[in-house]
Nucleic acid binder design. Structure first.
Length: 494
RNA sequence: GGCCGGAUAGCUCAAUGGUAGAGCAGUUGACUUUUAAUCAAUUGGUUCGGGGUUCGAGUCCCCGUCCGGCCA
């Protein structure tokens, strides 16, 4: 091994250079992917181990990916990224001898995983640093990291190679970790209220519980078609029938519809059902749940938006009746006595796109709500007394046959969480299903109606779009920014 | 599905229709407390693909692919 390897000749090929280094490591008898390393601490532990005024701290052993490499002759500073953050380490020829020049300087690269051991000290600028006395390469990276300062900007690559985004874009790492902490907090909150977490099927023969086009698939063994679920609702209610009177599920649902910054074809829903409660009970539940998640995951209930406004999640939340919002926005006290044609004409005046001819009357009104009112509901607002046509699974309001006992919780200009006083009259439920199904009566979930006939306790039910909640709490611009691996068109050239 | 914008070195980005460049990363060297380290030298290009206009196309035109935004 006397001939000098010519890295210069291949220096334009970043991968070839690293493969050559890999070969040199192996030629020297080292396994570049050796596993063992006793990690005793993470980066976030280190500052507290070296209190102010103390010269030298205890020995620590950390591990992670090299994300910065500053070589200055016989001493070098290296930043190592682990799950908790970045730890600076100080490598010197004095401490490491010949290995410093022959191994550390020649064969390690940005992106490599290393284990590092040494005592903590403070640099002259005050940064707590590991004075390395021992280190080991744990995994060689054969490809370079994206640029260290600008990070990774190409949106497609951010989503397709999220691991690179996580390594170099701190903001992405922080945001996606916040999502996990939000979900963790929600689970703890519901457990503390006596809810049982359950898992229900994702393959449904009838995709019910919401109005959405499902993804379809086929089960070979039974030779029958299934749909991926579009909601969790109907199985969780079967749990209520069975006496599990506080249940929740956090699960993936699939809707074969639009794809936009606010819509992902697969997204995560929380649904919770509490027997002997109703939609008013769900108001308190969801408000406490979101406030708790915000405090635990973010440490605050004040969310700054990009336009400078602040969403205040603390305290009580506004309530507004759907009809009042419509009357206020259209400026027409007689709105609900107008014919469909008059409403469509009014939509034109309000600057809305032409409603489609096959729309029902209530759909025209709901277009006003969806396009002109919901986007303006930035501060938390419970929209109540919603027209019954919009949800066939809720109880009719006593004293007003046109509305249902529900709320739509809107924050940040979008619906975050609907909740109902759940319909438990099997006769009324069947009628509502049949109206909704129209010509497609095979879409009525008879199995669910059978369960209802066995008796379901009165209950409040709540759904929370977890992705949208994460968008709200983290200030993300796009739902895909809070989903680790968003659905994408398959890559053309792998 | 419609309209608009984009695709150039590993990454982030430049380039009146006239020799494709910079920073970072890489390579070589100097440097024992750096903080986007610094300094010197240096490698690296099917300008997304195909066609057209032109003496000449990264740039203009057409078709396609992919991505993003707005709308449906």
């Amino acid at each position: 091994m006397s001939e000098k390897p010519d890295l210069n000749a291949i220096s334009h090929d970043l991968r070839a250079v690293r493969l050559e280094k890999l070969a040199q490591l192996r030629a020297a008898g080292e396994d570049p992917f050796r596993a063992e390393w006793d990690q005793t601490h993470v980066a976030a532990d280190c500052p507290s181990l070296l209190p102010e005024g103390v010269e030298e701290g205890p020995e620590v052993s950390v591990a992670g990916r090299i994300v910065a490499l500053r070589v200055m002759g016989k001493a070098s500073f290296v930043k190592v990224l682990d799950r908790s953050g970045v730890q600076q380490c100080y490598f010197t020829r004095d401490a490491l001898g010949d290995r410093y020049d022959a191994h550390f300087k020649k064969l390690l690269d940005l992106g490599d995983f290393v284990g590092v051991r040494g005592r903590l000290f403070r640099t002259k600028t005050g940064e707590v640093t590991v004075r390395v006395t021992e280190y080991r390469l744990l995994a060689k990276a054969l490809r370079p990291l994206p640029e260290k300062w600008a990070g990774l900007a190409d949106q497609d690559q951010v989503y397709r190679q999220r691991y690179l985004d996580l390594v170099v874009n701190e903001e992405s790492r922080r945001r996606l970790m916040a999502r996990s902490r939000i979900i963790e907090s929600i689970r703890r909150f519901l457990w503390s209220r006596g809810f049982l977490e359950v898992e229900t099927p994702a393959l449904h023969s009838v995709a019910g519980g919401a109005a959405a086009r499902p993804f379809q698939t086929h089960f070979n063994a039974l030779d029958c078609d299934f749909n991926l679920r579009i909601a969790l609702e109907l199985h969780l209610k079967r749990c209520l029938v069975g006496g599990l009177d506080r249940v929740f599920e956090i699960g993936r649902v699939f809707r074969n519809e639009g794809y936009s910054p606010r819509h992902s074809p697969e997204f995560t829903m929380l649904e919770a059902y509490q027997a002997y409660s109703d939609y008013r009970g769900m108001m308190e539940l969801v408000r406490s749940l979101i406030q708790t998640a915000a405090r635990e995951a973010l440490g605050t209930t004040s969310i700054a938006r990009h336009d400078g406004t602040v969403i205040e999640l603390g305290g009580e939340w506004r309530e507004a009746k759907y009809k009042d919002l419509i009357l206020e926005r259209t400026g027409d006290p007689q709105w609900f006595s107008r014919t469909k044609e008059e409403k469509i004409a009014a939509c034109r005046v309000l600057g809305l796109e032409e409603p489609r001819a096959d729309w029902e009357d209530y759909e025209v009104t709901n277009e006003v709500f969806g396009k002109l009112i919901e986007p303006t509901l930035i501060q938390p607002t419970f929209v109540t007394h919603v027209p019954k046509e919009l949800c066939p699974l809720a109880k009719i309001t006593r004293g007003d046959a046109t509305t249902i006992d529900v709320f739509e919780l809107c924050i940040n200009g979008q619906e975050i969480a609907p909740a109902y006083s759940e319909q438990n009259d099997p006769g009324v439920q069947r009628e509502m299903f049949q109206i909704q199904a129209g010509a497609e009566q095979h879409k009525v979930d008879e199995d669910f109606l059978l369960a209802l006939e066995h008796g379901m306790p009165p209950a409040g039910g709540l759904g929370v779009g977890i992705d949208r909640l994460a968008v709200l709490l983290t200030g993300a611009a796009n739902i895909r920014d809070v989903i680790l691996f968003p659905t994408l068109r398959p890559s053309a050239n792998p």
